[in-house]
Amino acid sequence: MPYPKCTLVTPTYNWPEALELLLLSLLNQTILPNEVIIADDGSNEDTKKLIEKFQANFPIPLLHVWHEDNKNRKPKIMNKAIAMANYDYIIEVDGDIIMNKNFIKDHLTFAEKNHYLFGSRVNIQESILSKVLSEKIIHFNLFSKGIKKRGRTIRIPYLMKFSKNIDQRSKKLRGCNMSFWREDFIKINGFNENLVGWGIDDSEMIQRLHNINIKGLRLKYSAIVYHIFHKEQSKNNVEINNEIERVTTEKKLTYIEKGINQYL
Rank of each mutant, 00 (worst) to 15 (best):
N261P: 00
L142P: 00
R218A: 12
H139Q: 12
V9M: 05
A56F: 07
A85E: 11
L19W: 10
E204P: 06
I256M: 08
L50R: 10
N34W: 06
E245W: 10
R73K: 15
F110G: 07
G95D: 04
A18H: 03
I104F: 15
Q125F: 09
N213L: 01
N192R: 02
G151N: 14
I212P: 12
E257A: 04
V36G: 02
E52G: 06
N57A: 08
T249E: 11
E204D: 09
E92I: 09
P157V: 02
G119Q: 03
D201S: 14
Q29C: 04
I166Y: 05
N72W: 14
N34S: 14
L108F: 08
K5W: 07
I90D: 02
I91A: 03
K252S: 09
K149Q: 15
S163P: 08
E239P: 07
L62I: 09
W198Y: 13
R218T: 01
M160Q: 15
T7H: 06
K252R: 03
W66P: 09
N114S: 12
W198I: 06
D46L: 14
N114I: 11
R155W: 10
G259M: 09
N14Q: 12
N28S: 11
H64Q: 01
I260A: 02
N34F: 05
I212V: 13
K164I: 03
N192F: 13
K171F: 06
D41K: 03
K74L: 13
N194T: 05
I224K: 13
H107V: 07
N57D: 14
D184M: 07
P75V: 04
Q125R: 15
I147K: 04
K231M: 04
S222L: 13
I128T: 03
I240K: 13
N141V: 12
N44P: 05
K187V: 00
H139P: 03
Y13D: 01
E204A: 10
N237K: 14
K187T: 11
S134G: 02
K101E: 13
G190W: 10
T248Y: 11
P59M: 02
L32F: 14
Y226T: 05
M78Y: 12
Q233S: 09
W66M: 07
Y226H: 04
G119D: 05
K161L: 06
Y116K: 01
I77L: 15
M78I: 10
